[in-house]
Structures are given as structure tokens and as C-alpha cells.
Amino acid sequence: MKVMNKLSFTAVAAVVATLGMLQAASADTRKETRLEITPGGTVNIVNNYGSVTLRGGSGRQVLVAYTLHSDKVEVDESTTSDKLRAEIRTHVLSDPKPTVEETRVEYEVTVPAGVAVNVSTATAPIVAEGLSGDLTLSSDTGQITVRSVARVHVHVRGVTAPVSLTSVSNGHVEITSSGGEVQLVDVWGPKVWVGTTSGNISYRGDCSGGGDYNLTTHSGVIEVTLPETASFDVSARSVSGSVQNDFPLKDKPHSFYPSKAGSSFSGTSNSGSSSVELQSFSGRIRVKKQPSAAATPK
């Protein structure tokens, strides 16, 4: 009997929970729209709360799918008559100001090849994957993730937004973040510039492409992990922090500043094709050798 009661209670609870979820789901509104865009055009997206996911697509239309969680916001979409610019903006309708939850809109945007995208959010995370146009991404606190892009400019700005870039080939990368952590994995190109105030910076890759790699922070930690085959010329200095180098380097004949044990070093690996500049004010800098595949424990 007790078992039966338990089962009944569980069943009722499950039904109530399901109804609740259905009710919540029914309050959400999902919409889709298509905006004409010319190759070389720009899509601007402003969405403070929720999320923005960008994916590479084909054709000449930007496909925008979004989910609204209340009727207190709407999405304004427009394109210019020459189809060079599309605007997508979350717009608050009601007064008094709705809650953050009510303002939340989730976007999934498919962007044709060669179209640039600018995204601005407050707390909404931004994910950009497989795009082939320039990216300008800005968020106060939302995670910014860029994956698998090539031959593009990637400009990222964040207040405390964590930033993660993976598989960026031949890119012009500029990241400015105040307190957010910046992680770069397999990112290379003619210019890779990262500046933070307190955010840690980690780079894992081979600094290839003969580019300029410049990582600067005030109090964050800079950690660079490179394979033995990497060809670069490195200078590292921390004004009041420490530096550590585990990488075999040849002395440079002329250095911008003299190596000083514990606070600065410079040197060349292989032919030194790329330039790597690491600067910290009070943070720690470390350059590590990536374990070779054979040495990596399985």
C-alpha cells in the first residue's frame, strides 16, 4: 500500500512538473526571419541578455532564429536598400523596465560567406563558428567563443567576459579585455594582439605564419605553450612580477632590453620567423615547451 502511495505521489509530481514545463515552454515564442545581404555586407546584432550563436552558411540571406521569453521585448530587424547592412536588435517595449529574464532573447544566426558580423551584448554569451567574414564581438560579462575561422579579422572586447579562440588560421586578432581570461588555442596569423588589465592570457599553438604576437597584461598571468618545432623570436618582461622560460632558446645578438634573470628574457627558437612579445606589469610570465606527441602519456 505504501509503495502504491509512493508511486502515485511520484506520478502526480511528474505530471505537475511536466505541465509546469509545458506552461513555461508555451510562454516562449520562437520566430525565424531571413534578411537579404550582399557579399561584403555587415550584420549588426545588439542583444543584451540571452545568447547569440553565429554559424557560417551559404547563399545571400542571413537566417535569424530567435526565442523570446516575454512579450515585453521585440526584435527589430532591418536591411538597408543596398543590402549592405542588416540590423538585428532586441528592443524593450514596456515600462516599468522588464526583468533581465523577461528581456532575454536567444539568437541563432546563420551568416553567408564573406559577410562581416558585429555583435554587442551585456551578459549574453556569444559563439561564432565557421564564419568567413570579419568579426567584431563585444560583451560586458558574457563568454565570447570563436571557433574555426580563417583569413578574417577578429576583434573582441570584454569587461570581464572570458574569451576563447580556437582554430583561427591566418587571422588578424585583436582582443582587449579588462578582467576576463583570454584563451587562445591554435591561433595564428599576421597579427595576434591581446591586452588585458587583470585577465590571465594563455596561448597554446605554434605562433606560426611569421606574424607579430603581442600579449600584454597588467596583473594577469601569461602562459605560452609552444611545440619544439615553433620558429619564433621572443622577448618577455615583467616589471614587478616574474618570468620563467622552459623553452630552449638561442641568445639574440641584439635585444630590445637586456635579459635579467627572473624578470626578463629574450631569445630565438629555430629560424625565429614570428615575433613574440610578452609584457606584464606585475603578473607572472611563463613560456613552456609543449610535450611532444610521443612523450604525451596516453
Binding site: T123, D140, S178, T197
Partner: peptide, 13 residues
Amino acid sequence: DVRRAYEDSLREV
């Protein structure tokens, strides 16, 4: 949390 992020960042910068 946005306001806090700006305050902290401003202090640090």
C-alpha cells in the same frame, strides 16, 4: 553583475 564588472574593472585599470 554588469555594474560590478565595470566597478571592478575601473578600479583595476
